[in-house]
Design a protein around this nucleic acid. Structure first.
Lengths: 243, 243
DNA sequence: AATAATTTGTACGTATGTATC
DNA sequence: GGATACATACGTACAAATTAT
């Protein structure tokens, strides 16, 4: 874990250090012992006071990533980074597969509305066409992984909200509505700092990073059936593209 | 640009606001006027004092993204987000294509070394096999877009450093060394906060986000020819996967 | 079993940065 | 610009829990 922390930059040292330790845990740097190095060791390593390291570890403890035990050390509680394959057959549930014991898809909100320019362009509809909007959060083993807003052509998928709520899966909801198969046509990936809405939806701490995908699915004839903007907790996932 | 800023989180308000304005510029939110809204408007929007907005704009001016003119307002100087397609035929230069007037690839450092476990696994070599390492920075219109560390099997591509330095392109360097075509086999994408090395290499400010790809290219027979870890300035690029 | 060493937890004081008014 | 309040970071000291000798 090379590289020093930066002073007087608007980002507190304890937060920079927390981010670095979280990353190191995720990368398996402390797998041998299952614990973080002692506070004094980290303090020397980062060139800061022990209290600054303590602030960083307190933040990680708050996230449930580590647990400090007096006299023993700071144990690593959770260390996950789900791999999310992106391909023609991209599906959330089968993609996560055996990486989590349990996956859930929760419907937070839904509605029927008129497609704005962005949605219309992706779904290849005329602006103003009626679309169904779904707000969902997907969890793996109880931890939120992503929150998504999806749009579907209303004429074809009016029953989407009900179908999703009962099946907790886009794939199965499509099947219920008569679409047995679909294809991931395009995926756009960007990254940004978490916004207020992300913090609660994904149980993040401020300053965290979200990976944002904008994706379009089509049926087997190439007709768009879904456009989604999905926000992932960046320290819990990685994407893999296999060609 | 919805969502309030977060207080007492280890990230200064002025930095959060700078990040949000940078993002908004990148997304084209102020394209109509070519300027950022007045400081008081932004102050009300974010729910902070005008001085705090001024700190944020000063940081953006330092980056060369905006320029404040007394009596007129704060003009937008630069606004780019390069699209980077990822496919079987992923190549940096043709991928950027007409999005930039000029692209360059600079060789910072190189060497011959023994493959560590990670490199060996991706290149499907025995650990310890000799490999060529290249440290490069790629620029579009003078702005650094990505910094990469690449490894090549030394037995096959010993001339890589020289070939890259003269051609400034992996594709053309491969061609010089007798490999006329290659395929992007796998790409892994994650995101993290910029480290000290990123700040200088990519001309970033602390707290910025980097998108990290780990990618493997093969020849037409499926034999690995290159493994690269590339770090992109997240607010200057987006990835697109077309299936 | 007793003691020392290690490691986290708590407390107080000081200086500087951040943000408001 | 100046005054005020709070957050951040450092320094030091000692207490409490666990592990090593």
């Amino acid at each position: 874990m090379a590289g020093q922390v930066q002073r007087q930059t608007g980002v507190a040292l304890w937060r920079q250090i927390a981010d670095r330790i979280r990353q190191a845990i995720s990368a398996g740097a402390y797998d041998e012992t299952g614990m973080v190095p002692p506070e004094m060791t980290l303090a020397v390593q980062f060139g800061v006071n022990r209290h600054t390291v303590r602030s960083a570890l307190a933040a990680l403890a708050q996230e449930g990533i580590v647990r400090a035990v007096q006299g023993r050390g700071t144990l690593i509680e959770r260390k996950e980074r789900l791999n999310f394959p992106i391909s023609k057959r991209t599906r959330f549930n089968s993609g996560i597969g055996e990486q989590a014991r349990e996956t859930r898809g929760l419907l937070l909100d839904h509605g029927e509305e008129q497609a704005n320019d962005e949605v219309a362009r992706w779904l290849k509809l005329a602006p103003g066409t009626k679309v169904i909007r779904l707000e969902t959060v997907r969890k793996a083993d109880g931890r939120p992984v992503s929150s998504a807003t999806s749009w579907f052509p209303a004429a074809r998928f009016a029953g989407m909200p009900d179908a999703y709520e009962t099946t907790e899966s886009i794939t199965r909801a499509f099947a219920e509505l008569g679409l047995s198969d679909y294809i991931r046509a395009t995926t756009e990936i960007t990254a940004a700092h978490a916004e207020a809405a992300d913090l609660s939806a994904l149980e993040l701490t401020p300053g965290a990073i979200v990976l944002i995908t904008k994706a379009m699915n089509t049926d087997l004839d190439g007709v768009p059936v879904q456009y989604s903007v999905t926000r992932f907790a960046a320290d819990r996932v990685q994407f893999t593209i296999e060609n």
